[in-house]
Write a protein that binds this DNA or RNA. Structure first.
Length: 178
DNA sequence: CGAATTTGACCTGCGC
DNA sequence: GCGCAGGTCAAATTCG
């Protein structure tokens, strides 16, 4: 069921916010694309010459995106290891479905309703062992056609499914890099 | 039968 | 210190 794509073609009467809006959380600290070279989805984008950009995501409530801070989930007691920065990459995608299959296998582990959003936010985790990549999918309450997918972490394993399909989808999308 | 989803509870950080 | 909001866990349930 590859229901995504579709909307990307209708670029005629759609505002700049439509299509795909690529944005990086906290470019300030991660503009070096550490490890972004060839890691599945993100790597794919860098191959296409996509440059991380900010200021594309227009979030009225900054609460929605806690960017600029390490998502260290170490509760209270941390092992005192090196500060592992946790970059998060947000993607605004115009799609009618929430599930944007990027080739990896995700297991949903939670769903919460956001305060200023009438739509719930879904939390996914990569099912690969040792792969702690997380992603959360959220829909904008203003434009329910916009789905924001936030990736957290990097995959350290090959994609399980054929990327060809996704590449094809990407080719249909317009990526704004400002 | 195993894997993935669902859903409420629980935990933690932050603001007041 | 309390309450709110976001994030995660885990048991039960459903699906393939």
């Amino acid at each position: 069921m590859e229901n995504y794509s579709t909307y990307f073609s209708s670029s005629s009467s759609t505002p700049p916010t439509s299509s795909l809006t690529l944005s990086m959380a906290d470019s300030h600290a991660y503009n070096e694309l550490q490890g972004l070279k060839s890691n599945g989805f993100l790597g794919l984008m860098s191959q296409m010459g996509v440059v991380p950009a900010v200021s594309n995501i227009d979030v009225p409530q900054s609460r929605s995106f806690t960017v600029g801070s390490e998502t260290d989930v170490n509760s209270g007691k941390k092992k005192g290891e090196k500060k592992i920065r946790k970059p998060r990459y947000a993607f605004q995608t115009r799609s009618q479905v929430d599930i944007l299959d990027d080739g990896y296998r995700w297991r949903k582990y939670g769903q919460k309703a956001v305060k200023n959003n009438k739509f719930p936010r879904s939390y996914y985790r990569c099912t690969h062992q040792g792969c702690n990549v997380k992603k959360q999918v959220q829909r904008l309450t203003k434009d329910e056609a916009i789905v924001v997918t936030t990736y957290e972490g990097m995959h350290s394993h090959p994609i399980e499914k054929s990327t060809d399909n996704f590449e094809h989808i990407l080719s249909q999308m317009q990526i704004y890099t400002s």
